[in-house]
């Protein structure tokens, strides 16, 4: 059976984002006590894969790099209909920026076996970099498309992929494996059913260490991340008030000059 591999990231529940904070020392997000959910766009990716399962009998494998306590969240992907989860979970993977993440995900995709299609969310809501999809494709040596708003196929082998270019829509026709980054416009992810929850308990969820995946220690985690958070600041938003007085003509001139100086005009 053809296989779709779906990259899924557990992220802090957006409903609890008002409780999130950044560690000013390390620049790392403090997630303790915040529950995780599947990154919403990853559900679109999973839905696209599950449609291939429904229509053409594909196998759907979810891969994820995440801390071990997010297994419960990943099991939701099984409850939605995925067949198995392969998870990379290791302290050595902590602090990974996008490049190290993509490198690790690529190892998981290879571990899953022949992938006939790789679906990802276009970006994660907590990172919003849009970088992992192209990086993953490069590691796998596959073509890719980001900002995908539609995936159609008649036969399960040739795909028409619609990409949002902001000012235009681009439709690509493609056969063979590729990496797609889906947006929320791509489909309407299915809801989890009680039957799905029950069946999820007996589906495999395998956890791998960096060693299990033969990952190069120099390319993973913080070590393998060329981008670092060099500093953090809260943008200061201040209201400035200045009362101009004088003759109307003169005041208007000064107002216009002032606005020009500030770059408003």
């Amino acid at each position: 059976m053809p296989q779709a591999v779906v990259c899924v990231k557990p992220i802090p529940d957006p409903k609890e984002w008002d409780r999130l904070s950044l560690d000013p020392e390390t620049g790392v997000l403090k997630r303790a006590g915040i529950s995780t959910v599947i990154n919403p766009l990853d559900k679109n990716a999973l839905e696209a894969a599950l449609q291939l399962k429904d229509r053409f009998g594909w196998t759907v494998t979810v891969v994820s790099m995440a801390p071990p306590d997010t297994q419960k969240t990943l099991r939701e992907a099984l409850a939605m209909g995925a067949d198995k989860v392969l998870m990379a979970s290791d302290r050595a993977l902590g602090g990974a920026a996008t490049l190290a993440t993509a490198y690790t995900l690529a190892a998981l995709v290879r571990k899953a076996g022949d992938a006939d299609m790789v679906f990802c969310g276009n970006m994660s809501l907590d990172g919003s970099t849009n970088q992992v999809v192209p990086q993953l494709a490069e590691f796998l040596g596959l073509p890719h498309a980001s900002h995908v708003v539609g995936v159609e196929t008649e036969d399960g082998s040739t795909f028409r992929v619609t990409v949002d270019l902001k000012d235009a829509l681009l439709t690509l026709q493609h056969s063979g494996p590729m990496v797609l980054g889906l947006t929320k416009e791509a489909n309407d992810p299915r809801l989890v059913s009680v039957m799905g929850i029950i069946s999820a308990q007996s589906k495999p969820l395998e956890v791998f260490s960096a060693q299990d995946l033969d990952l190069d220690p120099e390319k993973i985690g913080q070590k393998g991340s060329p981008t670092i958070v060099s500093g953090l600041f809260m943008p200061e938003i201040k209201r400035r008030r200045e009362i101009l007085s004088g003759e109307p003509e003169e005041v208007v001139d000064r107002l216009i000059d002032g606005l020009r100086e500030m770059g408003v005009l």
Binding site: K72, R75, E76, L191, V194, G196, I197, I198
Partner: peptide, 18 residues
């Protein structure tokens, strides 16, 4: 249980959406 927690989440999502 994990199943019951997942159920709550699923039904909450269903109720809010449908």
């Amino acid at each position: 249980s994990e199943q019951h927690e997942m159920l709550r989440k699923a039904i909450r999502e269903f109720a809010e959406k449908e």
